[in-house]
């Protein structure tokens, strides 16, 4: 691994283990999540129920799913703004194919494959052609959404088989945990292992810290990024199928704007937009924090505009606060130093 990685990631080896584990950004977010949950349960009527949890998980499932690969993309220093459009495209594809007589399972499979292709196209433009991902995915955001709306036009496909719909919205008997969360759990473990415990994952972090340093140390930067974009497209398409079945309606405008919710949650979860820093448990907590807050605020009859203001402020506060505290500390330190210097 390169010097940069060592310096930035393992800077705190001087600290005892418990401090290194407890005093992280991720722990802070998890603590915030727990605090919000506790305060809501105590003060918001109807919040403390299994139903809240079930709805919360159903509402955030699509964001949770997409946040997994998105975290890795952002850790490499790239971004994918086209995810919500891939959700829409996959939703429309499932609808059109199913309406055209293709069996549901095959339709879903084709939609997921199309998502992989959409992701590969993003990845191709970023890694092979060498374009900035921000610009590429702004373009494909419009392109994929345009294809989705173009394919289905004024109609919406609605008559999906009940078995599939139940699978999307049903819960594990006796618990408020939806089945989709089980799928998410499996994926989360897989992604967690991939990112945090494999050479591939170390490569992802190394790329985020420095593209060229990573390349010199033998990491195949282009291939890694391409794989991540394909993963993002694939998972987004899967989320699109879930979205379609959950609401029972395949529409071209499904999940419009979801990309911002995903990215906001990932950043809130402690992933650095510069790349090279972040962890999946923080991201998952970040998604759930935003979800829990809006669920609690809705139950407290707070209107959607205020919820948006709070989401935005929370995002800014979470990214600004480390810099502000650093700035304050530096000032204090400097003042202390200058006082010490002037003493003798």
């Amino acid at each position: 691994m390169t010097d940069a990685t060592t310096v930035r990631t393992y800077r705190d080896y001087g600290q005892p283990l418990w401090r290194r584990i407890l005093l992280t950004r991720e722990t802070g977010i998890i603590a915030a999540l727990a605090a919000v949950f506790a305060v809501s349960a105590a003060s918001v009527p109807n919040f403390a129920s299994e139903l809240t949890l079930q709805y919360l998980l159903l509402d955030t499932a699509a964001i949770l799913l997409i946040a997994l690969p998105m975290t890795m993309v952002i850790v490499t220093g790239e971004i994918d703004l086209s995810v919500a459009s891939v959700v829409g495209l996959s939703s429309v594809l499932v609808g059109v194919l199913y309406q055209g007589g293709v069996p549901m399972a095959l339709a879903a499979l084709i939609a997921v494959a199309a998502g992989a292709v959409a992701g590969a196209f993003n990845g191709f433009l970023v890694t092979v052609v060498g374009l900035p991902s921000l610009a590429v995915t702004i373009g494909t955001l419009a392109l994929y959404r345009g294809l989705a709306v173009g394919l289905l036009g004024t109609t919406a496909v609605t008559d999906f088989p009940d078995g599939w719909r139940d699978a999307a919205t049903g819960t594990i008997p006796g618990t408020p945990i939806p089945w989709v969360i089980v799928v998410f759990g499996v994926l989360a473990v897989a992604f967690g292992l991939l990112l945090h415990f494999t050479p591939f994952g170390r490569g992802v972090f190394a790329i985020g810290l420095s593209d060229s340093a990573a390349a010199f140390s033998g990491i195949r930067v282009g291939r890694t990024k391409l794989i991540l974009f394909v993963l993002t497209g694939t998972v987004s398409a899967f989320a699109g199928i879930y979205f379609t079945l959950r609401y029972g309606s395949a529409r071209g405008d499904n999940a419009t704007g979801l990309e911002l919710a995903v990215i906001a949650a990932v950043l809130l979860g402690g992933v650095s937009i510069f790349g090279g820093r972040g962890a999946l448990h923080g991201v998952i907590a970040g998604v759930l924090l935003i979800g829990t807050l809006s669920s609690a605020l809705r139950l407290a009859n707070v209107t959607s505009d205020v919820i948006n203001i709070i989401t935005g402020t929370l995002l800014i506060a979470s990214v600004v606060s480390p810099s502000v505290t650093a700035w304050v500390r530096n000032r204090w330190a400097r003042r202390g130093r200058s006082a010490a210097v002037s003493q003798p």
Partner: peptide, 19 residues
């Protein structure tokens, strides 16, 4: 001043101003 990437900040104010 806060040295936070503009993408993040303005994504936040996008929500906040609209709200």
């Amino acid at each position: 001043f806060a040295k936070v990437p503009s993408l993040v900040i303005t994504l936040g104010t996008l929500y906040a101003y609209r709200g």
